Simulated assay, not measured.
Amino acid sequence: MRVKQTALKEAKLQYWLFKSEPNKWSWDQQKAKGEQGEEWDGVRNYQARNFMRDMKIGDLGFFYHSNIGKEVVGIVEVCALAHSDSTTDDPRWECVDIKAVKGLPQTVTLAQVKAEERLQDMALVTSMRLSVQPVKPEEWAIVLEMAGMDPSQV
């Protein structure tokens, strides 16, 4: 186990944002899946699919409620690399599996993100329709601080 942890720490951790409509797949449903996690299926955008292909085990992401709430509500971890999406027979579409890590002490709304000058270039602001998107390390830290979390404690 020690080798695995060391390897993860040495690998460059990437950050992501996963959007879901809470009436279709909510944070509570994601948490209920536990350690096994759940496929992030149904993505039919090439750029989002390619982002998932770039993900590594242990990468972290924000779980974002879109349409209803429009807020970052939790942190997830990639627990399975890109593989065929089980919701289609079309081999072009792949997905990763993610598991819930922890909820945020305070949600961070889209309005708050847009109002934060340091986040004006964040994909959530500039590519709002993309369901899976990268988050820069500095953006990750700012959103966590806005949520009342110390980024070094995640």
Score class of each variant (00 low, 15 high):
M1K: 14
L8D: 08
A11Y: 11
W16I: 01
E21N: 05
D28W: 09
K31M: 13
K31V: 15
K33T: 13
G34K: 01
Q36M: 08
G37H: 05
D41A: 04
R44Y: 12
R44A: 12
R49C: 14
R49S: 05
M52G: 12
R53L: 15
M55F: 07
H65V: 01
S66C: 02
N67V: 09
N67G: 02
N67Y: 05
I68N: 03
V72R: 00
V72A: 15
V73E: 04
I75K: 02
C79I: 09
A80P: 01
L81I: 10
T88W: 06
C95L: 01
V96M: 07
I98P: 04
A100F: 08
V101C: 01
P105V: 03
Q106E: 12
V108C: 06
L110V: 11
L110D: 02
A111P: 02
A111F: 10
Q112G: 09
A115L: 03
A115R: 04
E116Q: 07
Q120C: 06
Q120M: 04
D121N: 09
M122V: 00
L124D: 02
V125P: 05
T126W: 11
M128R: 10
R129S: 03
L130I: 12
L130R: 12
P134K: 14
P134E: 11
P137Y: 00
A141S: 05
V143C: 10
L144N: 03
M146E: 13
G148E: 02
Q153S: 14
V154S: 13
V154N: 13
V154E: 11
V154C: 09
